[in-house]
Design a protein around this nucleic acid. Structure first.
Lengths: 139, 139
DNA sequence: CATAAATTGCGACAAATTTGCAATTAATAG
DNA sequence: CTATTAATTGCAAATTTGTCGCAATTTATG
């Protein structure tokens, strides 16, 4: 908990930004629930202005601390692999439940091949599977 | 071109909807550029009301004709595999260029394994790789 | 062609996101 | 520790994006 806070401070300072109270609050809310919606983020930081939260998210994104995911209809936010364990998502189209899963080495090989073939330098990747979860299938 | 239009008409009629002029225009704009933004979609159909475009996209999504992707900061829209060749994306974080690529059978195997393991029934999936394209790497 | 149902455009709303700027806070030199 | 400077915040207003109700229009059908 304090470890990741220090990591965050270090990461930001290296980029020339300070770890302020609002930024720390947003970070904590992202750790608290993953993936996170903007709405919940705002609700989770009642003493912080909406505009600051948007600005913080934009900064975190630029610094590679946060990434957006398209989950179902709306986007959600989540810490990147440097600040959270790397994983992907299964999303239930019916109930909206989100299940995280790890990727295989096979997948990584595939990504590397694709990137090399397109002369791309990989920074990150996301995989999302949409479908019906166990309980929603029974309909 | 007319083939896909007929396919669309058939698909919609089966679901009890008609292929009207606004819907056809939205479909054409989606074929024209992929992935497509809402803003461009609205601009591409100047004679059609914004609300109708939103309603059309919502309907297309429900009928499995269109899907949303999170590419970069904003979401984008694209025809699903039934109406466009199945593929994934490489997105350049610097210039925003989007390159499509095909998936391997290895990836599909992986997805099936993950789904089975979580008792999920797969409906669709998306993979996005973010990084730097060939020309943007040179910095 | 007549009728019923589906769909559209329009205008008003509501929600989400962005911006300018004055006030506050953080980093740093002295 | 205090003064100074630069970064950051809160606030209010503006913009953009997405939604809704409803009358007018279009489409499907008998």
């Amino acid at each position: 908990m304090d470890r990741s806070k220090n990591q965050l401070r270090q990461h930001m300072q290296k980029a020339g930004h300070s770890l302020t109270k609002p930024r720390l609050a947003v970070f904590a809310a992202l750790q608290d629930q993953e993936p996170q919606t903007m709405r919940r983020l705002i609700a989770a930081c009642p003493s912080i202005d909406r505009a600051s939260i948007y600005r913080t998210i934009a900064l975190f994104e630029k610094l590679g601390i946060v990434q957006r995911l398209q989950i179902g209809w709306k986007y959600k936010l989540e810490l990147t692999d440097s600040f959270s364990r790397h994983h992907h998502h299964l999303t239930c189209l019916k109930c909206g439940r989100v299940i995280a899963f790890d990727e295989s080495t096979e997948l990584i090989k595939e990504l590397r091949w694709v990137a090399a073939h397109n002369r791309f330098k990989i920074r990150s990747h996301q995989l999302e599977i949409q479908g019906l979860c166990e309980s929603c299938r029974k309909d």
